[in-house]
Design a protein around this nucleic acid. Structure first.
Lengths: 260, 260
DNA sequence: CAGTGGTCTAGACCACTGC
DNA sequence: CAGTGGTCTAGACCACTGA
């Protein structure tokens, strides 16, 4: 007995999906149909489909069927926000996405004042329970939900600035902070992977079995931590890229070799 | 109509786990025992346990039982391998982990020669199907599986170096490459989140529902891409950290303020 | 309404673990 | 060896979808 039955069925279906035989968005045969085709019981069929759903390959919708997930992936160059240089007139996200010919939207702006949770307090170097300003938004690419962002500011940084208003700041929040004496000179990102909460899954439009990529970005001036941004991305449609040191020389050298 | 039965059972068990009633590492009641206790069939018990495994809360081991997972998280400063500076006598991973007082191991070394897949070829700037040298290893922290690493080298880079031998290179592969004229000056990381394959889940000791964090690191000399390293980490026990620009000033200023 | 996936039962045998 | 989880069957009824 090589592989268990349900894994053989899963492998057969996986093959059809990755080979393009069943293209993204298409519907798989129904469960009774798969029973007959592979000569197994329905529970075994469901074990196979569960495995594929857990890999993010397919998604089942009650009463409708099981479909091949259509994954578009978008890469964010997360190391590009050097110091304050990205805040030149337009939001970095919109600029980056637009470059790729996609339509970027930022919706559902919200501003709240909360007390700092332990996680937030530690990163912002403020006391737990002290007041912080939270700015929330959701981001869409080509009309599809893509990420949830929350930015936390120490109250004394946000006070008296446009950060207190629940609207987009067209020239960028980094510039707004710099105008008030808080110039960003660097940041630290912490990236982790986890399963989404029910709410997150609902907004990001992912079924169960698709993880999220969570990024904590703590921004610093030469004096202190001035902002914490938490981004939650749909895991299977996002890549974060970081370029450290000199990568341009090696990439350009290769290109010129090709060209010659 | 409240919640489905299996979710009620899952919720009851989840409660006992998060409340500390069943501490990390402890064994849950056996499946027949849970059948009796909750008055449901074994399949329903298993659905509940599967759900908990998918959240990374528990882990089942055949023939032994189901146990509460003990999650330790480890943060890797992924932006620390500046140029070639990390290859100073000892492997960077072992050094970084040892600093934290944990025991790091690298096991199961393997060397293979393969043809480049499209993904590998694109990043290494070589033709698809050309020969590449692959070095594999698995990494443990405190004796527990933690990550799987595969490094790909263009054949002409690896040829005639110790990279061709299936053993650890104590002073680091970056140094070994530098000795043969390929000095690393920078790298690009691509980070994504996905569900593990069955094999990966088995090695990393996570349920099939716990995501993995996958990092593609392409290293460059001033001339070309010289290496591609693919790291697969257990998602719920790993954080990747990147520091961009100057973050030290802001952190130190805060500390001296506290101290004064 | 028929067809889909979601939930659930009551069995069975196998593979692995540790005594 | 007994006890554990892993796999598998053959049913059943329910909830949701779309024609």
């Amino acid at each position: 007995m090589p592989q268990p039955l349900y894994r053989q069925v899963a492998e057969a279906l996986r093959q059809k999906i990755t080979s393009g035989d069943v293209p993204p968005g298409a519907q798989l045969p129904s469960e009774p149909e798969l029973e007959k085709r592979y000569g197994v019981s329905r529970n075994t069929v469901r074990l196979a489909l569960t495995a594929l759903a857990n890999e993010g390959l397919v998604e089942s919708r009650q009463g409708r069927g099981t479909f091949v997930r259509d994954r578009i992936t978008f890469t964010v160059l997360a190391s590009a926000e050097e110091g304050g240089s990205a805040g030149h007139g337009k939001d970095a996200f919109v600029a980056a996405v637009t470059v790729h010919g996609r339509k970027a939207e930022q919706v559902d702006f919200r501003m709240e004042v909360r007390t700092a949770s332990p996680e937030v307090a530690a990163r912002l170097q403020v006391d737990e329970g002290s007041l912080v300003v939270v700015r929330r938004m959701r981001r869409l690419i080509d009309g599809r939900p893509w990420s949830i962002q929350e930015s936390f500011y120490p109250m004394d940084v946000a006070e008296g600035t446009r950060l207190m208003s629940p609207t987009d700041i067209s020239y960028g929040t980094i510039t707004e902070m710099a105008r008030h004496g808080h110039t960003q000179v660097g940041y630290r990102d912490e990236v982790l992977s986890r399963m989404p909460t029910h709410t997150e899954a609902a907004f990001l439009g992912v079924g169960t079995g698709v993880p999220v990529l969570e990024m904590f970005r703590t921004a610093y001036s030469t004096e202190r931590a001035i902002r914490l941004t938490i981004n939650v991305y749909a895991g299977d449609s996002t890549q974060l890229a970081y370029e450290i040191g000199d990568v341009v020389a090696g990439q350009e050298a290769a290109q010129s070799t090709e060209a010659s």
